[in-house]
């Protein structure tokens, strides 16, 4: 077995049967089988699985990114530091970890709208936004966002002024991008927590805009 281990991953193995074919076809049964095997062998504890699910179902989500955006809207020094080198700035707030080791924050302006995609897989800033929504991982988004971002934005009900250029960030490495949306009109005087409520998940991916105070985008 050690010989096998030493060569695993070295060459693509396109001509042999994939081991996953040994599992039953139904995905729920596949998951159950793997869970039974891995916990049965003592490799993974049920507590590890519960911890991961609880983390991404209940704890880490777009409220983290919204907090960062609200701070950037409220504090000019914070905004400058964030745009210059985001990783230590968000890490100071506790937003660091798996899939967020190298953060870059890109700012929307009247001249430029930013939008993030991962055409090759589904790279996404987990510590700031949680796990990605289904559409972000879909073939349609991955295929179309780079070629026709404005038509994709239309699918989200967003139309940009013709004078606004779109820059699409295809996350092909371990750098993760967060969009700093434009602060909505009418939000002057709002405190940080009220501002954070205007920051949608999609506005930080760039497929949406921040909400206007009192409802509406």
């Amino acid at each position: 077995m050690t010989g096998l281990i030493a060569t695993v991953g070295l060459m693509p193995h396109d001509h042999s049967e994939h081991p996953h074919a040994l599992l039953p076809p139904d995905p729920a049964l596949r998951v159950k089988a793997l869970e039974t095997i891995l916990t049965g062998k003592g490799l993974i504890t049920p507590g590890a699985l519960d911890e991961i699910i609880d983390t991404y179902q209940n704890r880490i989500g777009p409220q983290n990114g919204a907090d960062v955006v609200a701070r950037a809207w409220s504090d000019a020094d914070f905004r400058l530091a964030l745009l210059k080198d985001a990783t230590p700035v968000v890490a100071d707030l506790g937003y660091y970890g798996r899939q967020g080791e190298h953060m870059v924050v890109v700012e929307n302006t009247p001249e430029q709208h930013n939008m993030v995609v991962c055409t090759l897989c589904s790279c996404y800033p987990w510590p700031l936004l949680g796990i990605p929504p289904g559409w972000y991982k879909s073939d349609a988004y991955r295929a179309r966002a780079v070629r026709e971002p404005r038509k994709v934005l239309a699918d989200f009900g967003v139309t940009l002024p013709r004078g606004t250029a779109v820059r699409v960030w295809d996350s092909t490495a371990e750098v993760r991008y967060l969009v700093l949306p434009m602060r909505p009109e009418g939000s002057e005087g709002l405190g940080r927590e009220d501002l954070a409520r205007l920051v949608t998940r999609d506005s930080m991916i760039g497929t949406g805009l921040a909400l206007a105070p009192g409802g509406g985008a």
């Binding site: 777009p62 090759l120 295929a143 780079v146 070629r147 994709v152 699918d155 009900g157």
Partner: peptide, 20 residues
């Protein structure tokens, strides 16, 4: 997996905001 720019995938279907 290398599908950037491909034609034929249809619309992107948005989902509710908040935690996925």
């Amino acid at each position: 997996h290398d599908m950037g720019g491909r034609f034929g995938d249809g619309p992107v279907v948005p989902e509710p905001q908040g935690m996925a």
